[in-house]
């Protein structure tokens, strides 16, 4: 079992720390899965997926070496505290010096992050962070596989996240829940209902994915506004494609994509309305 990578591109570093920071907001523990083709972050809540992020190593790392537990099962699953990883990576934003991440076995298995920090004086410092990890044994792997994506009732393009974020922040002050409604005419509605008022924001002319006939049947999901707002902070990653998928009154799935680079999916269960 071996894992070693090197990252030196400033944008890749920024995106990588943003992804980790998003994961931090969602959970205390996450699973970091390594395969030859992809790197994954997985956050689950009692086996239900919450966040699923798929990264293409070639786009993030200049060097990527990985040998799995066996030739048959050429993968590594690690469980770690994302907040510790985020703290180690936080200095990346300031300096764009290469960083090395590798799996080591010190007193316990660790992800070792080696950074080169430049300082005002001429001498730069070499900095090593060890993030303790738990190597997940083979028999638990099936819990952290790619989640089954259900058949969505509707897939709609999201408007610019920073527009929505501002509105949802306001709505958050008034209500704990939000209903997301979409139809195939390209309309997306964000709605809150409180004892004092009903407020709905209508976005129109959004792209609909799929080839089902155009009807004005509405599909909706009522979710915790906190969870929805968490997803909206993803606009710091400058995604080029953000979609909202709804399974009517069952689930909201939000998907953030940077072409060939990153796919990040959020699963938000709907509340009974």
């Amino acid at each position: 079992m071996k894992f070693k990578c090197r990252m030196s591109d400033g944008i890749a570093m920024r995106d990588f720390s943003n992804i980790v920071n998003t994961v931090v907001r969602a959970s205390k523990l996450c699973v970091f899965r390594l395969t030859k083709q992809h790197v994954y972050f997985f956050v689950g809540d009692k086996r239900w997926p919450v966040i699923w992020a798929e990264l293409t190593p070639d786009n993030f790392f200049d060097e990527y070496t990985m040998i799995g537990v066996s030739t048959q099962h050429d993968e590594i699953f690690l469980e770690l505290e994302p907040s510790m990883l985020a703290r180690s990576l936080s200095s990346l934003k300031m300096t764009a010096k290469p960083v090395k991440i590798k799996l080591t076995n010190k007193q316990q298995p660790c992800l070792t992050i080696e950074l080169e920090l430049s300082s005002l004086s001429t001498e730069s410092r070499h900095c090593v962070h060890d993030v303790p990890v738990r190597v997940i044994p083979r028999k638990e792997w099936e819990m952290y596989q790619t989640p089954d994506i259900p058949q969505f009732d509707i897939t709609i393009e999201m408007p610019e996240l920073k527009h929505i974020r501002h509105q949802v922040d306001r709505m958050r002050n008034m209500s704990g829940q939000i209903t997301i409604i979409a139809d195939r005419t390209g309309q997306l509605i964000l709605k809150i209902e409180t004892d004092h008022a009903t407020i709905a924001t209508h976005f129109q002319g959004l792209l609909i994915k799929g080839s089902k006939p155009i009807t004005d049947q509405k599909y909706s999901a009522k979710v915790e506004i906190k969870k929805f707002a968490m997803f909206l902070s993803g606009d710091t990653m400058h995604p080029d494609n953000v979609t909202c998928n709804i399974v009517h009154e069952r689930m909201l799935n939000l998907c953030l994509m940077i072409e060939g680079h990153l796919t990040m999916q959020y699963f938000v269960p709907a509340m009974s309305s």
Binding site: P159, H163, Q167, D195, H196, A197, T198, I199, A200, T201, H202, F203, Q204, G205
Partner: peptide, 19 residues
């Protein structure tokens, strides 16, 4: 009846119905 407020910006309409 409720007081209705419509706010519009760049084609995005927010419809508030205040009881």
């Amino acid at each position: 009846h409720p007081v209705t407020m419509l706010i519009e910006e760049n084609g995005i309409i927010t419809d508030c119905s205040l009881k």
